[in-house]
Design a protein around this nucleic acid. Structure first.
Length: 262
DNA sequence: ATGCCGGGTGGAACCCGA
């Protein structure tokens, strides 16, 4: 079973690119971030035509997340608990049957706040959002399910995860508080899929549109997949669809995926 | 380089992203 995540940077601008990617890589479940669309405008038929069930949690203009699954959802949860009054659409969670078993897989799709500039309320919002994510993750881990948290974390975990880490020391993505919160989350008992397969450098998921970042491979690794112990028991491999960044009209992020043995 | 590009809104110029 293949489960993927991708910050597509606008579903209207990216629809053809996303459909091409789905046809090429055929994930069973796809988590999309930054759909930048209200639910009513999301082009769900285009995805249904490829055999996907579609669940969205959108808002006008910014943010917005979506779940695609070849198998119908048993349950869908929008928003993180404890974010009453938070109008930003950044989290959607779905449960689908695990193929060839009587079990299910729970998938949390997240678009974590950027948090810049660090001196602003945007950074405290980022950290409080991470606290709410941590609580939700603890609840789900207690269920001892096959559970994955995938998405755009907007956190560079370690210096090796940036081409030029010195350029990010003032940035919210690389602040000690951001990295500590990501470590605390992972240390609840998750396995980070990419780092379970390689400790190598030059493994990125984002390249800025500006200043020739892609051409210079000036990237950062900020899109991550965390797996519960029960998911890790099924883990086969993890990859990054780097070639998609070279397509026409690309997102600035590329897809990350895992294969589970099912 | 706290916006060089790109998407969104709204219908020009400005907000937002990382």
């Amino acid at each position: 079973m293949k489960i993927a995540t991708w910050n597509i940077n606008g579903v209207k601008a990216r629809i053809d690119t996303v459909l091409d990617w789905l046809k090429e890589t055929t994930p069973d479940i796809a988590c999309l971030q930054e759909i930048k669309s209200i639910d009513e405008s999301f082009p769900r038929e285009a995805f249904e035509d490829l055999g996907y069930n579609v669940e969205t949690h959108g808002q006008k203009g910014f943010n917005g997340v979506a779940l695609l699954s070849k198998t119908p959802f048993d349950e869908v949860i929008r928003r993180l608990p404890g974010d009453d009054g938070d109008e930003q659409a950044r989290y959607i969670e779905g449960i689908v049957p695990l193929p060839n078993t009587a079990r299910t897989v729970r998938v949390g799709c997240l678009y974590l706040p950027n948090g810049n500039p660090v001196s602003s309320e945007k950074f405290t919002y980022k950290l409080s959002w991470m606290e709410r994510l941590q609580k939700r993750a603890m609840e789900n881990l207690a269920g001892e399910e096959v559970f994955l948290l995938l998405g755009d974390y907007n956190v560079i975990p370690d210096p090796i995860d940036a081409k030029n880490p010195e350029n990010w020391v003032e940035d919210a993505l690389f602040q000690p508080e951001s990295r500590q919160a990501f470590r605390s989350l992972a240390n609840l008992g998750f396995t980070e899929a990419l780092r379970a397969t390689t400790d190598g450098a030059d493994v990125y998921t984002f390249w800025d549109y500006q200043a020739g970042a892609w051409q210079k491979n000036n990237g950062i690794r900020i899109d991550h997949i965390l797996m519960s112990p029960q998911a890790t028991d099924l883990f086969k491999d993890c990859g990054i669809d780097k070639h998609v960044r070279g397509w026409e009209k690309p997102s600035d992020h590329v897809p990350v995926w895992v294969n589970l043995a099912t």
